[in-house]
């Protein structure tokens, strides 16, 4: 179970450049395409993106998951840092707030912290207890602007 003394813990900051090929690969995955030639034009063609008002190829709504998983040791390092158990882990909620577009070429720094840790259910009854951990991550671009905030809730049963 996650270690409740980690409540309030801030992770080191990590930065990642948003690569256009990474956007295309991610969009191919979520749109179930076998290659990146068949994804929507705004995700593979800079001019198509610019024509509809983006500065460059934009990210799709759930792409920000990359800023956590591809930096700082990813999932395993994150759950080890809070003392959670991979064998019991369930992702129960995810929330994104979007403040400004993120596009190919942006450099995003993620600032993640543990904002909540609590027990849910009844500890005395097997299967009726879960420990909840909530991580909040601010994504800051190369101009220092807060562009996206993610709130990730996971449970251990």
């Amino acid at each position: 179970m996650a270690d409740k003394s980690k409540l309030g813990m801030e992770f080191p900051f990590y930065s990642m450049t948003v690569e256009k090929n990474k956007i295309a690969e991610f969009v191919a995955a979520i749109s179930q395409k076998d290659d990146t030639d068949h994804i929507k034009a705004i995700y593979r063609d800079e001019n198509a993106a610019k024509n509809v008002g983006y500065e460059n190829i934009p990210i799709p709504p759930t792409f920000a998951t990359n800023f956590v998983f591809w930096t700082g040791g990813g999932l395993l390092a994150t759950i080890q840092a809070v003392g959670a158990d991979l064998n019991k882990l369930l992702h129960s909620e995810e929330e994104y707030e979007y403040y400004a577009p993120i596009c190919a070429g942006d450099v995003i720094t993620r600032k993640m912290k543990v904002v909540e840790m609590y027990d849910r259910g009844n500890k005395e009854r097997k299967g009726w207890h879960a420990q909840v951990t909530i991580l909040e991550t601010e994504m800051i671009n190369q101009r220092g602007e807060l562009v996206l905030k993610a709130r990730t809730t996971f449970m251990e049963k």
């Binding site: 191919a28 998983f69 991979l86």
Partner: peptide, 10 residues
């Protein structure tokens, strides 16, 4: 494919 694209290798 999604695991590689997202970095979630659970």
């Amino acid at each position: 494919r999604y695991a590689g694209a997202s970095g979630d290798f659970n």
